[in-house]
Nucleic acid binder design. Structure first.
Length: 310
DNA sequence: CCTTAATGGACAT
DNA sequence: TGTCCCTTAAGGT
């Protein structure tokens, strides 16, 4: 999936294109008919994210009355389209291994479109569209989520309360993270994937942040030193904010990327030099040359360099 | 063309 | 431990 950075981009995008507007909400697939009826016609006050949870706040008046909670899971995704106010609203979700696609669908747009044509409404739904949100200016379709439900504000609050600190939410600190890791006999590689310990980190940020900090994925939480834990948290804050800005996960430092051109300018980050260890098993470590290894950890693939991370 | 694996996690068994 | 969600790109034939 979309790790936390993608969900925060989604929240920003929903706020940009829909906030303050009354939305039509439907379920072309039919599986979300009851929920759609609860939201149809209400105003979207705003969108927010905590970890991998996307929360859309709706209300008929000033107060938030209903919250649409979406979890994309492994392969859920949103696609967007509409008039010029939707320009730049890209599709976000999984799988997006090469970065999020830029499938903006507009009517009367583009360099060769000539005079702008008025937006005439969303297209016929394609595939299994669980929910469609639609305004006078454009639409958003959700396919393949693992969760899509309507909650009360209190229920939504309870969902967020169950989660650990999110490096992308300002105001949460290293301290909360350290507290949840300290004293635990569980391996660091497992703790980083536990959303109650740290919200928003997925399989790529797990592997890459442990590599960057030179930490052994099997180190029990209780044996993580305070300085190492603080550095790990701070690196995640940096990496994930980069991810929000770039729309993809890039963790290699310039000097390990082999990507400076004749003028000394950074060359584009190709898909195959964006990561240190993720999906690089059998290849040489970018730093020391040792073969990168892979093992299953909690039913997910863990990648690490046995020399750099010990 | 067909098969497989993929950034997740809830739930059943 | 297995199943679902039921998408999509990559890789093999």
């Amino acid at each position: 999936m979309p790790e936390g950075h993608s969900i925060h981009r989604l929240a920003r995008q929903f706020t940009d294109v829909f906030a303050g507007q009354s939305l039509r909400v439907s379920s072309p697939q039919g599986r979300f008919d009851a929920g759609a009826r609860l939201l149809d016609g209400q105003v979207l006050h705003g969108a927010r994210a905590h970890g991998k949870q996307l929360l859309l706040d709706f209300g008929a008046g000033e107060d938030v009355q209903r919250v649409l909670r979406v979890h994309l899971g492994l392969y859920g995704a949103f696609s967007f389209g509409g008039d010029e106010t939707f320009r730049g609203a890209s599709s976000i979700g999984a799988p997006r291994r090469m970065g999020e696609t830029d499938t903006f669908e507009a009517q009367g747009q583009g360099p060769d479109a000539g005079p702008a044509i008025a937006y005439t409404g969303p297209p016929e739904p394609v595939g299994q569209v669980r929910v469609r949100l639609s305004s006078d200016h454009g639409w958003a379709d959700l396919r393949g989520p693992s969760v899509c439900e309507v909650l009360t504000p209190a229920e939504a609050g309870a969902v967020v309360d169950r989660l650990g600190p999110d490096p992308l939410v300002p105001g949460t600190g290293a301290e909360e993270f350290l507290q949840r890791v300290s004293g635990r006999g569980v391996a660091l590689g497992q703790l980083l994937m536990d959303q109650a310990v740290l919200a928003g980190v997925g399989n790529i940020y797990r592997a890459e942040s442990l590599f960057r900090q030179g930490l052994d994925p099997w180190l029990p939480g209780r044996r993580l030193s305070r300085p190492d834990g603080t550095a790990l948290w701070e690196d995640l804050v940096r990496l994930m904010n980069d991810g929000v800005r770039e729309g993809r996960i890039i963790t290699t430092r310039l000097e390990h990327r082999g990507s400076v051109d004749e003028q000394g300018e950074p060359a584009p980050v190709w898909p195959d030099n964006a990561h240190y260890v993720y999906q690089r098993d059998g290849l040489g470590c970018r730093v020391c040359g040792t073969d990168v290894r892979m093992a299953q950890m909690q039913a997910r693939k863990l990648y690490w360099c046995p020399a750099c991370q010990s």
